[in-house]
Nucleic acid binder design. Structure first.
Lengths: 197, 197
DNA sequence: AGCGAAGGAGAACGACCGTTCTCAACTGGG
DNA sequence: CCCAGTTGAGAACGGTCGTTCTCCTTCGCT
């Protein structure tokens, strides 16, 4: 039934907003009820438990986050520009109102020690992000070690931006990424496709 | 009274182990009571509330964490080696049993949206860490931008190590830091004091 | 029109949590 | 030896949370 689909979407919209803003445990099912406009009965017939709702929230957020990133990266054509576009997208994300870091890092910190499923979701998300970076790095003809280094810059920028409440870490990450890219090009590649900024 | 001091230490020891391993909200005061061997009455006469206990736990962990880092860095003499020693220390930290990332990032994710004091503690800790890196970078005669970049590498390594459960992010971070350091030296400095690895 | 299934609003329930209280055991000073 | 004060063990209290239940309305179908 497509009606269930719509209700599911509304429930997940409300859950995402609340869980991300306040943390999972600080949000009761009553708050999800109020924010979604769904009754508790309907909520529990769509999701068997709060934990199931949390896991679905994480799954959907993972997909949407990576799609949004890929969409932005796909506006660039040169391999090196595509790589750097990751950090531009992070910068835009950090500036969004209500930005409070990575939902997976936050959920892992809150529940990773107590829920194996949440920890698994966080691992999956970060693994997928790393794989995506590895593809971009490979398309630039760079060694895969750079993917791990870019991953660290991105992750560090996310948490630093969240805690300090500013978007500048994205700029620092981009600068560092560019320096690493150039250093690598100087050592092992013909010509960097990206000139000095 | 020195008796209170000892009891405080035991309470904080228990709280730190439990909060760090399972998250703050998943640990009740009863668990702290059992783990510390203190009675609830004593606990509440030492700390007026759970929130006070949480904040003290964070304060003490901040101090100890930075002291441990500084102690390790102080085993090195050359400025560049001291800078890289940060990542060696991270590597050792990541390998400790029960490592579960940065207590401040975790607490920020769990409570930062709901407790201004916890958010403030996280900000303070990260600011102090950045200041420390800035000192090391300045001692190496490097521009302060590098401090921000090293901070991102370190933060990224911490969360990536926590979520993936391995210590290798420290190695990647160190490699990236070394590359950034050399690139900077090539541009603006006389001679890097650190040869090829 | 009448009936049965479904849904909404919210009360109810059992569990748990932070905090306080009870009460008995223990302490040290007169 | 006794008593006032402190402490420990854990029961008790008020509140909240996840989940279920009740009761009433609504709605589609014949």
């Amino acid at each position: 039934m497509t009606d269930d689909e719509a209700a599911r979407a509304r429930a997940l919209d409300a859950a995402e907003e609340l869980f991300y803003a306040r943390g999972v445990q600080a949000v009761g099912m009553d708050a999800v009820r109020n924010a979604s406009g769904l009754s508790l009965k309907r909520l529990y017939q769509l999701f068997p438990s709060k934990e199931a709702l949390v896991l679905q929230f994480l799954r959907r957020r993972d997909e949407r986050w990576r799609q949004a990133l890929a969409r932005h990266v796909d506006t660039r054509t040169s391999p090196d520009e595509r790589l750097l576009a990751v950090f531009d997208w992070l910068h835009a994300w950090f500036r969004e109102p209500g930005f409070r870091g990575c939902a997976f890092i936050n959920s892992f910190g809150e529940l990773g020690g107590v829920s194996a499923d949440v920890a698994e979701q966080a691992r999956h998300h970060k693994q997928a992000f790393r794989d995506y970076l590895a593809d971009l790095v490979a398309a630039s003809g760079l060694p895969s070690d750079l993917a791990d280094q870019f991953l660290l810059l991105a992750e560090g920028a996310i948490t630093t931006a969240a805690i300090t409440g500013t978007a500048v870490p994205a700029v620092h990450a981009r600068t560092a990424a560019l320096a690493l890219l150039r250093a690598q090009a100087r050592n092992h590649r013909a010509d960097p496709a990206v000139g000095p900024r």
